[in-house]
Design a protein around this nucleic acid. Structure first.
Lengths: 246, 246
DNA sequence: ATATCAATGTGTATTTTGTACATATTTATT
DNA sequence: AATAAATATGTACAAAATACACATTGATAT
């Protein structure tokens, strides 16, 4: 292995196996959801003394027998019970001292999930949704990871039909616009927003009205099936060696 | 460490240290340059039997005592002698079987360098520039890494003042346009290109003419100093333990 | 010196996209 | 029946992207 990576023999001798396999690799998931007209992220209370009272993202070490891109699916499945989620790799963070207890390089993914989804069960209530806007500080470098993922989400949300992963299948244009406003952190003009979305051609008019609003109901829409693929990180077959915690 | 990542004690016992530290992490550099009016990439002949005759990207294992983002700088410095390069992290590739000799997860960076730079000395002539367009196959998953990095470069080149890293300090608008055409793989309209570049405000007119062309010379420009920062991956201080190969 | 060649340098009309903005309509509620 | 609150919709204007042609300059060849 070391040979493959073009070190010379003399150097190889000097380097113990452990020295190069001394770095752990993890994934961290920035799991976004949308409720109460605000973007939320799923956090867990850090159990490290160094970070007592702080929250952190959901992550886990990557297993030697799973693809990197499979690891965040596993984390999500374990923690939320959901397995049909939108996931996208964003960036890999690897400062020497980013983790207090050792050298861990982490690949960050963001995920978009519909909080009303049936399967969603928050693992032992250890997990809580936090409004993204109110998060000032997280354990490790997780605030930077969160900010990086939020920025990426903002870059992509107007270009690709991904925001719909945060909504139930049927939604009104008002709900959709409020979602976009929550993600982007800006107010949008209703007419211009509708024009833009119409131009994308992502939506299918159901010719059905909302029935749960205390005012004039709006039309309901769905994302056209053609756009329903959950692209991004591929979900390859996992070959777990019975390490799954459930 | 394992505790921090939220495995439970029962599980920890089952997992040997080596099992989790069994994954190596590397960086691979897609080093772009520009010559003969074509985008080139720096490759090395693979010395693995499995890939005999194929070329591969320049990479190395990340050392336990260097930041992830520092590793590609080290690789570039060692291989080309250059240390003031533009580098940007693109994506991390981690399929189980992407590397024939073991589990290696790799973070890909692309780099832009001026091939006419004085310091550039290709390590023992093992390295060669290949026109990107002509590359059909590479060792490992390096063709996919190359494609991913090229795509990212194309996305960024109109938005940020980075293409200039591929040119000598002084250049004509013709050279700049030819460079953009090489990167993007399309012909551009001269007047529209100039208008667009002018609008960006990146360039400073030197009021000096080319003198090495067999036709009417054009004006020479430089990138305004304010835009000369090599952003992207930060170059943190390395704390190497005398492992540098030179 | 003159003619030719090849590239530089420049502007306008058109289309497309983004932005600002107001009123009539529908339904639930009182 | 009146009111309140949201839906639904179009147009004028500005900004950005695109398509397109000709006069000028300097090097070169005769």
């Amino acid at each position: 292995m070391i040979k493959d990576l073009k070190l010379k023999t003399a150097e190889i001798e000097k380097i113990s196996h452990l020295e190069y396999f001394n770095i752990a690799i993890s994934v961290d998931c920035v799991i976004f959801s949308y409720k109460d007209k605000a973007l939320h992220v799923l956090l867990i209370k850090s159990d490290l003394e160094e970070y007592s009272g702080l929250y952190s993202l959901l992550g886990d070490l990557v297993r030697p027998d799973e693809d990197l891109d499979s690891a965040p699916y596993r984390v999500l499945k374990q923690r939320t019970g959901m397995d049909d989620v939108y996931l996208e790799q964003v960036h890999t963070f690897g400062s020497i001292d980013r983790h207090v207890s050792g050298r861990v390089i982490t690949t960050a993914y963001y995920s978009l999930i519909d909080i009303k989804h049936q399967k969603l069960k928050l693992d032992q209530n250890e997990l809580h949704w936090h409004p993204v806007k109110e998060i000032k500080k997280l354990a490790f470098d997780h605030k930077i990871i969160l900010d990086t993922c939020l920025q990426r989400l903002r870059e992509q949300v107007m270009e690709f039909p991904i925001a719909f992963n945060l909504l139930p299948p049927k939604f009104s244009l008002r709900e959709l616009q409020e979602l976009y406003e929550a993600i982007l952190g800006v107010k949008l003009d209703r007419r211009n927003f509708r024009k833009k979305i119409a131009l994308k051609g992502w939506l299918q008019d159901l010719n059905v009205m909302e029935n749960d609003v205390p005012h004039r109901p709006g039309k309901l829409y769905i994302l056209k099936p053609a756009f329903k693929k959950r692209k991004a990180a591929k979900r390859s077959i996992q070959r777990n060696r019975s390490l799954v915690i459930e």
